[in-house]
C-alpha cells in the first residue's frame, strides 16, 4: 500500500494521462555489428555519428509512435506504440480494407478485449457496454494476449480454421483498437499457424469509424475457461 502514497501537492486541472508510452529501447535501434573494415579514425567518427543519430532515431520513432517488431509475441502492456510492420503479413489501411471487404469478403477477426467487470459488481448486475465492430466480424476476445494457454491456442486456431473453411490462403483481417498489441499478436499468431494472406488492420474500430464506416453490435465468442 505504501507505494501508492505520494507527498506531492495537488495539481488540479492538469491533464496527466494519455495513452501509455513505451520506452523505445536504444539497443534495438543501434546496429548490432559495427563495420569491420573501418580504420580507427573512421571507427571513432562513425561511433560519434551513430551516437548523434541515436537520439534522432528515438525522436523519430516516438513521433511516429512505432516500435520494432518483437521476436515473438508482445507480452508487455497491451496499450502503447506498436510496430509499423508485421513480418509474414501486411498492414492494411482503412481504404484498403473497405476495398478488400467489397471485393474478397475476407474473414474479419476482432480481438478487442472484453470489458473487465469490476469485482465488486455482481455478475447479474453487470451490463457490459455494447461492442461495436466492423460488420461481418467475429469477436474473439483474448486471442491477442501475449501468452495463450494450449487450450486458448486451440480455441483460436479452430476458430480460424472454421472461418476460413480450412483455406490457408483465404484473406484474413485482424484488428482491435489503434495502438493495441492485441491485434498484432493475433495476426502474428495466424501467420505462424500458416495463413498466407494475413492483414493487420492497426487503425482498428476507431479508424474504421473515423472514415465514416458503419459498425454493428456483436456478442463475444467467449474463450474456454
Amino acid at each position: 500500500m505504501q507505494a501508492w502514497f505520494f507527498s506531492s501537492p495537488p495539481t488540479w486541472g492538469r491533464v496527466r494521462r494519455g495513452k501509455p508510452r513505451l520506452v523505445v529501447r536504444q539497443s534495438s535501434l543501434a546496429p548490432s555489428t559495427p563495420a569491420p573494415q573501418l580504420g580507427g579514425f573512421l571507427a571513432t567518427f562513425a561511433t560519434i555519428a551513430l551516437l548523434l543519430l541515436i537520439p534522432l532515431c528515438i525522436a523519430r520513432a516516438q513521433a511516429q509512435e512505432t516500435v520494432p517488431e518483437p521476436a515473438g509475441f508482445w507480452t508487455g502492456p497491451m496499450g502503447g506504440p506498436v510496430p509499423a510492420t508485421i513480418a509474414g503479413g501486411r498492414v492494411i489501411e482503412t481504404a484498403g480494407l473497405a476495398a478488400l471487404i467489397e471485393e474478397k469478403q475476407p474473414v474479419l477477426v476482432d480481438v478487442g478485449p472484453l470489458p473487465h467487470k469490476p469485482e465488486t459488481i455482481a455478475a447479474e448486475e453487470w451490463v457490459p457496454p455494447p461492442h461495436r465492430t466492423i460488420p461481418g466480424s467475429v469477436w474473439l476476445p483474448g486471442a491477442g494476449d501475449g501468452k495463450l494457454t494450449p487450450k486458448l491456442d486451440d480455441w483460436y486456431r479452430s476458430w480460424l480454421e472454421q472461418l476460413t473453411g480450412g483455406d490457408p490462403s483465404k484473406p484474413l483481417v485482424v484488428f482491435c483498437h489503434p495502438d493495441c498489441w492485441g491485434s498484432w499478436n493475433a495476426a502474428k499468431r495466424a501467420i505462424l499457424y500458416g495463413y498466407s494472406n494475413v492483414h493487420w488492420y492497426e487503425e482498428g474500430i476507431e479508424g474504421w469509424q473515423d472514415a465514416g464506416h458503419e459498425t454493428r453490435v456483436v456478442q463475444p465468442e467467449l474463450p474456454p475457461r
Binding site: 501508492w4 502514497f5 505520494f6 507527498s7 506531492s8 495537488p10 495513452k19 501509455p20 483498437h177 476507431e206
Partner: peptide
C-alpha cells in the same frame, strides 16, 4: 463524442496522488 479507452485507461501516478489526498 469520439473518444475511446477512457474507462480502461491504466492507473498512473495521478491516481496515486489522488488516493493520498
Amino acid at each position: 463524442v469520439k473518444a475511446a479507452g477512457g474507462c480502461s485507461a491504466p492507473v498512473g501516478a495521478g491516481e496515486a496522488e489522488s488516493l493520498a489526498q
